[in-house]
């Protein structure tokens, strides 16, 4: 059997049951998932998604660098250039059409902290309540 470098307890990224996952990691790769018996929501049970649905973390399709559309094509860009462009365009559009011309979709897949900060950007910096997520879909 493979011996893990470490086992990290976290929360399943798939559904709202919130099963506790123990990620077994070897050389920064998840190779096995278990769940502790005292997990509050799932008592150690996991469904097929929680137990086996982790390959996507290491997928070759993962985005590794920012992309910007230039001449109609999405091409790799540096972080500073990409972020600078986003901020510049958002402020331009806000100043030209008003704050309510911008919408923010936050995410039922992202963490609480990320969602909080994103709506803080929308409400506190742009000045719009156009904040929603797709989970009502």
């Amino acid at each position: 059997m493979i011996k893990p470098d470490r086992i990290v307890a976290t929360t399943c990224p798939y559904c709202g049951v919130g099963c506790v996952l123990n990620l077994h990691i070897k050389e920064d790769v998840v190779y096995r998932v278990t769940s502790p018996h005292d997990a509050p929501a799932n008592h150690g049970n996991l469904c097929v998604k929680g137990r086996f649905g982790y390959d996507f973390i290491h997928s070759k399709d993962r985005l590794t660098q920012p992309l910007m559309r230039k001449d109609g094509e999405l091409v790799p860009a540096g972080w500073d250039e990409a972020m600078g462009h986003v901020a510049e365009r958002l402020l331009e559009i806000r100043d030209k059409y008003g704050p309510d011309s911008i919408g923010f979709l936050v995410s039922a897949k992202c963490t609480n902290e990320e969602n909080y900060l994103m709506q803080k950007v929308a409400r506190g910096l742009i000045g719009t309540n156009n904040v929603d997520h797709c989970a009502r879909l």
Binding site: T11, G18, V30, A41
Partner: peptide, 29 residues
């Protein structure tokens, strides 16, 4: 513009499950 974020396995934070239980997400890599 496309900004590459990371998966749940690479970040710290919390998720709240269907019974309103706030639980930790921990960076594993």
């Amino acid at each position: 513009v496309v900004l590459p974020g990371v998966s749940f396995a690479e970040k710290d934070g919390t998720f709240t499950n269907t019974e309103r239980r706030v639980q930790l997400v921990r960076a594993a890599m």
